[in-house]
Amino acid sequence: MIRETLYTMKSLHRDDFKIEGFRFGSGEKTMAIVGSMRGDEIQQLYICSQMVAQLKELESQGDLDPNKSILIIPSCNPYSMNVSKRFWAMDNTDINRMFPGYDQGETTQRIAAAIFKQLEGYQYGAQMASSYIPGSYVPHVRMLKTGYENIEAAKMFGFPYISVSTPAPFDTALLNYNWQVWGTSAFSIYAGQTNNIDKKNALLTQQCFIRFLKRIGVIRKPVKNVGYDSLLLDEDNLVRISAKKAGLFTAQYGAGDYVDEGATIAIITDPNDGSVLEEVKATTSGYIFFAYNKPLVFQHSLIFTII
């Protein structure tokens, strides 16, 4: 393993901004894994750090193919993480809306360009992603429908689900979108949480990475986990449930739970007198794919999607 500083930038009064990477093997650029791009992507950072530890162990035992190159970047944005801001703290721009970047452009465009330069040319790329809608997800692989999405490759993770979605105009500046367009089989990995460490889903995600790396020939020793026969979902076909009322939100079920049609899955109460404003009912039977997880809910907010 080689620990390498991939990018540095001076700050006026802070220590230098640094993006660190961990390289395993050499030769064929096989897989890159990117952790937190936003300052609140703690689960994403945690999983990458655990993957570095695991691959380091495998490498020391001679169980990694030295001719296949792996790059892991646990955090692309330590500055925002250290001040608890989701986006670039100076101007609130999102590095993950700046790809492929521009090395003569604005600060986050330059950071994106530097990251993309490191990530170009890998056969497979995985980014630990998060959504702007607060909530938890069933662990899954997500891909944008660019015409280049590689669903067969995504199945090698053995996640319970693979979802595909139609890109919106602002998605064209995402890493995932640009990675795909530039020839990498790119995956966004949703590992349940964003702001917290969820060890159960982190472990499941690590196992999926190990399985994938075995199947593409990076890991040489037998891997003893079988994984799922992933179900392919089109996000346009998920059943969406929105809050009819605003108020205090308490969920009865979470992501991954099975619910029957008509079951009460959440309750919205009046924040002042505690009266029940809405009993949120499952409008179909199935597994909950996404569950809102904030205590205050706005009218019309998306609170569940069900498979």
């Binding site: 605003a246 205050l296 706005f298």
Partner: peptide, 11 residues
């Protein structure tokens, strides 16, 4: 006009 969580409308 849409409800906010605590006694206010988004207008």
């Amino acid at each position: 006009s849409s409800e906010l969580p605590i006694g206010e409308q988004f207008l």
